[in-house]
Design a protein around this nucleic acid. Sequence first.
DNA 1: CGGGATCCAGAACGATACTG
DNA 2: CAGTATCGTTCTGGATCCCG
Lengths: 150, 150
Amino acid sequence: MPEHPPAPARPGLDFAAWQAAGFDPARCPVRNVLDRIGDKWSMLMLTALAARHRRFGELFRVMPDISKRMLTQTLRDLERDGLVTRHVFPTKPPGVEYRLSPLGQSVLEPLSALVGWADRHFPDIEAARARFDAAQTGQPDTSLIEQDAA
Amino acid sequence: MPEHPPAPARPGLDFAAWQAAGFDPARCPVRNVLDRIGDKWSMLMLTALAARHRRFGELFRVMPDISKRMLTQTLRDLERDGLVTRHVFPTKPPGVEYRLSPLGQSVLEPLSALVGWADRHFPDIEAARARFDAAQTGQPDTSLIEQDAA
DNA sequence: CGGGATCCAGAACGATACTG
DNA sequence: CAGTATCGTTCTGGATCCCG
């Protein structure tokens, strides 16, 4: 395999125009959204709430290794961003239920695309990591040095 | 049940089956992938390389507020995972060029879906944040307390 | 049961200086 | 030009205790 062309500018992607427009580092939507769902638990939380609403305690069973602190905080943050709604039942021991809002439902679609990609290509990534790490401990493998500049 | 249905289990989403299968917390593909592109710069880096390959110095211009350290580290991590490839030209001052690998190209599609969602719904999120923060500083707004348990 | 408050360890990140 | 090395800071998240 010689090498892939210098990036064919795939159709349907407006990345070029998007980032060439010169974004403001601070109020970039991608930053804002990624800072939310990019943390350790938010994405898992959204998938946990995708099928149906859950009680606080239920979420512990679904997410085995989360701490109570992070469970609360993640839910608060998602609630603040309008992705989940909180419903309190003033019963004997109080019960609290969390649901995805319509906005939260709408993020499931792009999210499922990413999850699907992760599932399909995770073996590739693991293989790439193994190759890379092996190349570091062994000889540097200079086979991909180019011969001429652009 | 008078309120909106308990999550209609949207078509095309296998979240229920996926997370109900009882994932292993450690080797969960989502965790692994999110730990990579979920950091501060990886996603921006991928979009910067989407249109065409770039030199190291070019990436500074595209990403105004990244530090040299993080630029290097992010590129290394992406290279390790096989998403970008590194091409060295042994010219007078050495030149290094970064490209998306085929694997890296393939992630642009789910990524663009997420970026598109972020762009479209960012106003909604900002509005939700404003509402939430206003409710905290003002009176707690108990209007959404339910009247009966499940 | 469903939290909040506090403390602390480690990871992520930025700034700076030095190198081939 | 394209990094590496080191340091210091900030941020994240886990543990623990307390409360209605």
